[in-house]
């Protein structure tokens, strides 16, 4: 019997289709377009198990039913970790059913979340949630009796974001503003966090923090960015649980503020799941109504659309002066050009 673990050439359609069929037959999984590398375990030339990754997330893991429990997964997953490291991904994440957690734990994966949900998030590497919490604790405003949090992408920072933060600060002594760190938006993270910092500079007791790897990102919540119709409720809940269990507890956050989302089903579903999980941790979810300007709801996507079409009047009505200063500056030229030429909604 000949058993080998092999890396598949995803560009080779014949190879790729073999994996696609195997995934579908063995576990009903699809093959994502953004898949970076795929590994297969073959026995006498037939695929019996596979694993892939994109960025630092391991995914599309499947094993032939006939071989489950035979210890085949561990060598394949071990090789996948090594391959991810070779590609420079040193902090590795995987979503899995709670039942499969032990296989990963045996390889050194550690649980991040998944107590109240049907999926667990595990991580591998020298970085980890405990270390992140220690770093986060440095930003804690210790004398504050009540703290709340908002999570924002700010692509770009609008008057709506500012309004949400103002709502939060009216009811708390300190507000932690987490800026999503993942680079899936037209404005880069360094631009977004700069616009936020500038935009709240005059407000006291507002602490702007980078979202890090555990705040809404494709890792914690991939569907937010793809707007996939088959939105996975469990991932939302997992994200909420990680926020409550690790982040809110570290910073003593007792309220989270979100904006009402009238058009976007994904955000609506997200808010509902968020409320359900936060309640378990006795964290209150407050939903602020969206700000309107000249009969139109202020949103970052409306600003991007206006930037695309060159409608500077709308841009001016929806963003604070600090953001306007940035987007009309020399430094933002590249990003603005990108917005004009792209069809991406994000």
């Amino acid at each position: 019997m000949d058993e080998t673990v092999r890396i598949i050439d995803n560009q080779n359609l014949v190879e790729r289709n073999r994996v696609v069929s195997f995934l579908e037959e063995s576990s009903g999984l699809g093959f994502d377009d953004d898949t970076e590398k795929t590994l297969v375990l073959e026995r006498d030339g037939s695929i019996v198990a596979t694993a892939s990754f994109s960025g630092n997330v391991m995914k599309q893991i499947a094993i032939d039913e006939k071989f489950r429990g035979a210890g085949l997964a561990a060598p394949l997953l071990g090789e996948t970790v090594r391959e991810m490291l070779s590609r420079g991904h040193s902090h590795i994440f995987v979503f899995t059913k709670p039942a499969n957690k032990e296989i990963f734990k045996g390889l050194g994966f550690r649980k991040v979340g998944g107590t109240f949900t049907d999926a667990a998030l595990l991580e591998w590497g020298a970085e980890g949630i405990e270390k992140y919490k220690k770093e986060l604790a440095v930003s804690r405003v210790d004398e504050a009796v009540s703290a709340s949090a908002v999570v924002v992408n700010c692509n770009p920072f609008t008057k709506g974001h500012r309004y949400l933060i103002e709502c939060a600060i009216r009811e708390s002594e300190v507000v932690y503003v987490f800026v999503v760190e993942t680079e899936k938006s037209l404005f880069r993270f360094d631009e977004r966090i700069k616009m936020v910092s500038e935009g709240v500079k005059d407000l006291e007791n507002v602490v702007v923090l980078p979202g890090g790897p555990y705040i809404i990102s494709p890792v914690a919540f991939p569907s937010y960015f793809t707007h996939a119709e088959d939105l996975l409720r469990v991932q939302t809940e997992l994200d909420a649980e990680i926020f409550a269990e690790h982040i809110a507890s570290t910073l003593m956050i007792e309220k989270r503020w979100v904006g009402r989302e009238p058009y976007c089903n994904v955000t609506e579903a997200y808010n509902n799941s968020l409320a359900r999980i936060l309640e378990l941790y006795e964290i209150k979810l407050n939903i602020a109504d969206r700000m309107e300007e000249g009969g139109k709801i202020v949103s970052a996507s409306a600003v991007r659309e206006a930037l695309r079409t060159g409608d500077m009047e709308t841009v001016r009505s929806m963003v604070p002066q600090t953001t306007l200063d940035y987007i009309t500056s020399e430094r933002a030229k590249c990003t603005i050009e990108k917005i004009r030429q792209t069809l991406s909604r994000h």
Binding site: A74, P75, R82, L85, H89, S90, G108
Partner: peptide
């Protein structure tokens, strides 16, 4: 964001994986 690293070993049982980052 991702840094260069070097590694040795594996995650096989009775082995170890060593990863060094700058």
């Amino acid at each position: 964001m991702e840094k260069r690293n070097a590694k040795a070993g594996s995650l096989e049982s009775s082995d170890l994986l060593v990863v060094i980052d700058e």
